[in-house]
Design a binder for these strands. Structure first.
Lengths: 260, 260
DNA sequence: CGACATCTTGACTGCGTTCAAACATGGTGG
DNA sequence: CCACCATGTTTGAACGCAGTCAAGATGTCG
């Protein structure tokens, strides 16, 4: 059900028009595979709130996020919703090799997607094992991310969760609005979703997120520029709050200076 | 570091000695691929507490669980641990295509594993795309499971989490000690890990798990046979407590009667 | 400028954590 | 066979974090 605001198709791989794919699983593929992939690809833009895939619905679409953010969510019988994943630019979405999808995929912001018909994509993977291999690598990365997220959700206090979230955001998507000043001290983080979504994602409420953020402001760790833009004033303190071995302030700064 | 209690190697695929693999990704593979796989496979038994893979360590081992339960966990700097996944018989463990593992894998019970050298296994996947395809299917299933778990952890009350856990246990591993009486009314669930591990897994404490279970006993939903064995007295009530669209009492009973 | 969505702040209540002690269970040696 | 200890589970009491409901502040777009 592509919306009315559809764009042109993507000339990926051939002339290098689709940077997402060139950087993703196209670059290492044989030329003719890339051409066939390009013939299958369709680029669409969706307004916020559009449901790309419906829980319990048919799994007929897969693809990559080009721009914007998708949320994967699971609906409860009581009307509540639980966010189980965020999909950022370059992330792969959809469920390969299954007739059904278990999670609704919805545009959390206005989003542009590069989509493929699931069955044709699978046929192409059967034809080109190298393509399936690239997708496998992508899926393995997603699995790591999902497990990291499980680790985050298991934490007790919202302080830890929120601090972890900000750091994961920087590490996984340094190109995504996380700016770094020249002196490598001023670090800006753009949270691409609303408080309510973030709350669902962290397993808490929008009010508590607010309180937590404000408490960090009071203790001099953060500064709130706009509700969706934060400046990190004390990265070491943030890493400390997160309480994770995984995060190393220096490594995050390195990754981000490379990205910007 | 295989322990002293090593068993013989596994003659999987050839004479059908390793039922785990025959039911897993071997059955659909060409004969010579199966033979090479069998040549690579080593079966070991480990006592509880053995660390199979170490966080931040080298990723040199992959394989399947034959018997017992493994837990994937992430250590915190404060000494705390967070369980991010359980691995049951037939589950695949290890991190393909990466030099490093992000999570410790530890035997939660005495366990028997079928292991492969990671690089040789990858070489075999390169040689036989059909093998890589089978592994891909397995990884996709794991990803679904991880996301389902994220949904569980996001729930507010421990009641919901615990109820969900029991139902997920039945659905994903019906063969694993979940017994079903002839009248399809008496349902017994064996929790294969200790309270403390379960608490880490559910993001709570052993005490709260206890209280929750006892509260369910008082309201007539459960009966505690031993600390690790429960009898479900009112499946509908349990499904109700879990508050998930996903769970259907009848479907669970069907799956379990097939398994037993 | 006004209407709406979103975010923040406040007061209150309750669930779950914490610390502590009692209670099972299983294995070991006298 | 039973006393003893180690391990694991249950129960109890008190505190604190976070959820809830409600109002106010801020931002956004026509």
């Amino acid at each position: 059900m592509p919306s009315a605001s559809a764009k042109t198709t993507c000339d990926l791989g051939v002339s290098g028009g689709c940077t997402v794919h060139n950087g993703l699983f196209c670059s290492r593929l044989p030329q003719d595979c890339r051409r066939k992939l390009a013939a299958l690809a369709r680029v669409w833009s969706y307004p916020r709130g559009t449901r790309i895939l419906e829980q319990e619905g048919r799994s007929d679409l897969v693809g990559n996020v080009i721009d914007g953010v998708l949320k994967m969510l699971r609906s409860q019988p009581d009307g509540g919703e639980q966010i189980v994943g965020l999909l950022m630019p370059t992330d792969f979405f959809g469920r390969l090799y299954s007739e059904e999808v278990d999670f609704t995929v919805e545009a959390a912001t206005d989003a542009t997607l590069c989509t493929y018909d699931r069955r044709r994509f699978e046929a192409l993977m059967a034809e080109y094992p190298a393509l399936e291999h690239e997708v496998m690598l992508s899926v393995l990365t997603e699995l790591d991310a999902a497990r990291e997220w499980i680790g985050l959700l298991g934490r007790r206090t919202v302080f830890e969760k929120f601090a972890c979230f900000l750091l994961i955001l920087c590490r996984r998507w340094p190109f995504l609005g996380c700016g770094l000043a020249a002196d490598r001290r001023r670090l800006e983080i753009v949270v691409p979703i609303r408080r309510a979504d973030l709350a669902l994602y962290l397993g808490t409420t929008a009010e508590t997120i607010s309180r937590t953020a404000q408490a960090m402001v009071r203790s001099g760790v953060l500064r709130v520029i706009t509700p969706s833009r934060f400046e990190v004033l004390d990265l070491d303190a943030l890493v400390d709050l997160a309480g994770e071995t995984e995060f190393d302030g220096r490594r995050i700064l390195d990754a981000m200076s490379k990205a910007s």
